[in-house]
């Protein structure tokens, strides 16, 4: 079998007495959509922060392809193809939607010690930014300040910023959090289009979406992985049923 794109081994991270990530190991193959589910406080967001390099693990290793990235800073991981979206929307509120994306495009378009030419009218940034906005269906909102976009639109922008880095591995932390049903449906459709094109790690509470989209699912509880497998295997796993999924939910 080919080397996995991401392999995490024995990852540990605690906050004082709280063990947020407890000896977590998992692998994600190239092109896979890997979902992580688990109750609030299970350590999913903490895991994503360690994968992105925002938090240093106390133990364990993270490999991207054949490269150990455990101690690599975020910006270098970003250059190696990891991108993330945030559970709590993290955009540039004063910038227009287009400028939000253009900034992310800029991060991967050579160095930015350029002091002279206006960035906002630079077609090399503007065109890709518009294309990405179109791809998430926000093209008509390009000139609107991000702060005044509707919640669902901000969630889409959140993902579009991550996509602008053209990642190989995209970490999505609850992309549908707080979305109205129609927006959530739009997001599911968008994710299914994305699936197969890049490798995705999806954290999501909507079980219908997870079981419909995921190639594999990892279940976390109290910082530990209690099961990992195909949607069918997870559905059939007794421990998962007991610990997390309500019996009736799977009936």
């Amino acid at each position: 079998m080919a080397e996995p794109l991401l392999s995490v081994t024995g990852l540990c991270r605690h906050f004082g007495g709280v063990v947020a990530t407890d000896n977590v190991s998992l692998t994600i193959a190239e092109g896979e959509l890997h979902a992580i589910i688990g109750p609030n406080g299970a350590g999913k967001t903490t895991l994503v922060a360690q994968l992105m390099g925002e938090l240093r693990p106390h133990r364990g290793t993270i490999r991207l392809g054949d490269r150990d990235v455990t101690t690599m800073p975020s910006y270098r991981r970003s250059r190696r193809g990891i991108a993330r979206s945030f559970q709590i929307t993290s955009i540039f509120p004063e910038f227009t939607a287009r400028d939000n994306i253009a900034l992310a495009v800029q991060a991967h378009a050579g160095h930015n010690f350029r002091f002279w030419r206006a960035a906002r009218t630079d077609p090399a940034l503007r065109k890709p930014a518009c294309a990405i906005l179109d791809s998430v269906g926000l093209g008509h909102r390009a000139d609107v300040p991000a702060a005044t976009l509707a919640h669902g639109e901000q969630r889409l922008l959140e993902i579009a910023i991550a996509l602008a880095a053209r990642p190989r591995l995209l970490l999505l932390d609850e992309p549908m959090a707080g979305m109205a049903p129609e927006d959530a449906a739009r997001m599911v459709r968008f994710l299914s289009q994305l699936k197969g094109k890049i490798t995705l790690l999806l954290i999501e509470h909507d079980m219908d979406a997870v079981f419909a989209l995921a190639d594999r699912i990892t279940v976390m509880v109290y910082g530990s992985v209690i099961a990992s497998g195909t949607p069918g295997q997870i559905r059939a796993n007794a421990e998962v049923r007991k610990a997390y999924l309500g019996e009736d939910e799977l009936a």
Binding site: Y75, S90, F92, L103, N112, R114, R117, A118, I161
Partner: peptide, 29 residues
């Protein structure tokens, strides 16, 4: 005026707006 509207200018404005996001999208701030 040139500086704050240049690519460099956008980077420092982005850093003011949302430092965490800037790091995640690949800027060594």
């Amino acid at each position: 005026q040139r500086l704050v509207n240049s690519r460099f200018g956008m980077v420092i404005r982005g850093a003011k707006s949302n430092e965490r996001r800037m790091a995640a999208i690949g800027f060594p701030l």
